[in-house]
Design a protein around this nucleic acid. Structure first.
Length: 568
RNA sequence: CGGGGCGUAGCGCAGUCUGGUAGCGCACCACACUGGGGGUGUGGUGGUCGCAGGUUCAAAUCCUGCCGUCCCGACCA
């Protein structure tokens, strides 16, 4: 590719609304252009990167035995009504009507369509297992699109759906996908971790997320300091801490005017947050109040709470008026003592003795409170989000928390959709059984942003080789003036192309500084400078994007040298 | 959905308080110089000042409504 014939639309200035580095660099390098909130055009240079990611993903999916299909973006409401998600999904599902006033939606994912396909296509266990995948544009009307293509409304995703006659077969494909994903992210040159995850709104039993580690990530991942354990903090189990029960003190009430928070309690009365508890009220499935009790310094994990039997989904915090009517006290003075409601206590809170809590009387708290003696009926559950320094759920080491960008997610769906949509096959006994399903996603366009978050410096993007729009860029200096330079560059360009190297030549009539700056900003891994000065010695200068100094290589060896570096 | 900010040339911004000829930098075009790290000079192109209504002799500027966009919040008792 010649840059004289390829739009390099870089800018020096960063658009004001780009917050994270990848978004800034993608705009500055001219990879994407915003057309509306969360909706972008991929420019020629950016599209090359997207295609490279797609290529690696496609190859590894095929290696793992998946077959490619292309499903529609616009999907009929009937399918979504059948699965129950037309009502469940909420405003994130972009709905539209056709000219006949029939309901449709823009596919945010494709379980319904694929299940319908498998249902009509597969009648016998003999055709199982099968794993269909597609690489396709999705639309989710995100509440808050941000960070460019990291969380956009329209995005490209690879999604795959496998079908099985039983769970054992699903399990096998699931781990095959786990392996394929690892290969994909290895090939793409990303620093990533597979992480145990919540199954979320899609539902199902077992799940791993693949996260690219980066500070700008939107998820918190809990790691063990001593093992391979990694889990989304949404899911990571908080163990019961060891605690020696103290000699019970008498329970006494004390005045706490204008003390609405644990923080205030700590500052004004010297009560350690870890020696106090807080009581939160949520609505159960029948709308009745449920008290959730946590240690003052701990955080409620909504996902864990939601999974308790009898809870509303999604979890609904109770209104203050309702709480006041039930307890007689306002937020800030609530506690479990004398409460006539279901009480669920977090493990860590349940091993406290002589703790402080609200008295269910405004501006008053109790101290010296003890479980069993002062509160008789309660359940104990894992309710809180793990924090750094907690013992690791795996039993070894401590929890360490890092930020991650979710770029892949694999689920075992089981029979959730096949049952709802009656996607059944005849098994060996001639009996009709719902197929077991797995589902496996990779955010293609998000990977592009995630790769930049991980690979950049003050001069711009540094593409991993597999993603780079070009592997090598030739920079001729004074090409229009010097015939030597022009000839040498053209010859090298032709040689590299003949060797199958993805090479570009910056033959624009720009000053050298502009060319150097541009090729660094757009992140080309290898740069070859061809100028009169070095040509006089029969050499060209080759510099890796991460290298501080160029290497002089004889012009006759340059093509060979470059071809080896690209492939190796 | 709640709170806040912003909307003036492709991009980054000033001008708005205090109404009176729409500006600057980058980018773009032309020419000249320059020619191994975003170079210099001269001359140019480009704007219904987000939209609609109102006040006024006069509105980018004041008033009302709407739209777009960004940030924060929706997790605490």
């Amino acid at each position: 590719m010649r840059f004289s014939n390829f739009p390099i639309s870089t800018t020096k200035e960063t658009p004001a609304d780009a917050e994270v580095i990848s978004h800034q660099l993608m705009l500055r390098a001219g990879l994407i252009k915003r057309i509306a909130a969360g909706i972008y055009t991929w420019m020629p240079l950016g599209l090359k990167v997207v295609r490279n990611v797609e290529r690696v993903v496609r190859e590894e999916m095929e290696n793992a035995g998946a077959v490619e299909v292309a499903m529609p973006v616009v999907q009929p409401a009937e399918l979504w009504q059948e699965s129950g998600r037309w009502e469940q999904y909420g405003p994130e599902l972009a709905r539209l009507k056709d000219r006949h006033e029939r309901d449709f939606c823009l596919g945010p994912t494709h379980e319904e369509v694929i299940t319908e396909l498998a249902k009509s296509e597969i009648k016998s266990y003999k055709r199982l297992p099968i794993n269909y995948f597609q690489i396709q544009t999705k639309f989710r009307d995100e509440i808050r699109p941000r960070f460019g293509v990291m969380r956009s409304r329209e995005f490209v995703m690879k999604d795959a759906y496998s079908f099985h006659e039983d769970h054992a077969s699903l399990e096998k494909t699931y781990w095959r996908m786990h392996e394929a994903y690892s290969t994909i992210f290895d090939r793409l040159g990303l620093d990533y971790r597979p992480v145990e995850a919540d199954t979320g709104s899609i539902g199902g039993s077992h799940s791993h997320e693949f996260h690219v580690l980066a500070d700008s990530g939107e998820d918190d991942i809990a790691f063990s300091t001593e093992s391979d354990f990694a889990a989304n903090v949404e899911l990571a189990e908080a163990l019961t801490p060891d605690a020696v029960p103290a000699e019970p003190e008498p329970m006494t009430m004390f005045d706490t005017p204008d003390t609405k928070t644990i923080d205030a309690l700590e500052k004004k009365y010297g009560v350690a947050a870890s020696a106090s508890i807080k009581t939160l009220f949520v609505e159960g499935e029948d709308g009745e109040l449920v008290a959730l009790v946590l240690r003052g310094d701990h955080q409620l994990n909504q996902i864990k709470a939601e999974k308790l039997p009898g809870m509303s989904q999604p979890l609904k915090m109770a209104q203050e008026e309702a709480v006041k009517a039930a307890t007689g006290a306002s937020f800030g003075s609530l506690g479990p003592v004398g409460l006539d409601a279901r009480i669920v206590v977090d493990r860590a809170a349940s091993v406290l003795s002589n703790f402080v809590c609200g008295a269910n009387e405004d501006d008053k708290h109790l101290r010296g409170v003890n479980w069993h003696r002062d509160i008789n009926t309660f359940e104990v559950a894992d309710l809180r989000t793990v924090a750094a320094g907690d013992p690791s759920p795996c039993g070894k080491g401590q929890v360490e928390i890092k930020r991650g960008i979710e770029v892949g997610h694999i689920f075992q769906l089981g029979t959730k959709y096949s049952e709802a949509m009656r996607a059944e096959v005849l098994d060996q006994n001639g009996k009709s059984v719902p197929m077991s399903m797995g589902c496996y996603g990779i955010g293609i366009t998000r990977i592009v942003a995630a790769a930049i978050e991980q690979n950049n410096d003050e001069n711009g993007i540094i593409w991993p080789e597999a993603m780079a729009p070009f592997s090598v860029v030739l920079i001729p200096l004074g090409m229009d003036k010097s015939e030597n330079v022009a000839e040498a560059t053209e010859a090298l360009y032709a040689d590299l192309k003949a060797r199958g190297v993805n090479v570009a030549m910056d033959d624009r009539k720009e000053r050298p500084g502009v060319k150097f700056a541009d090729c660094e900003l757009i992140g080309i891994p290898l740069r070859v400078t061809v100028g009169e000065r070095s040509l006089a010695d029969g050499v060209v200068e080759i510099q890796g994007r991460r290298e501080a100094e160029a290497t002089r290589v004889a012009i006759v060896d340059a093509a060979q040298h470059l071809a080896e570096r690209v492939s190796g």
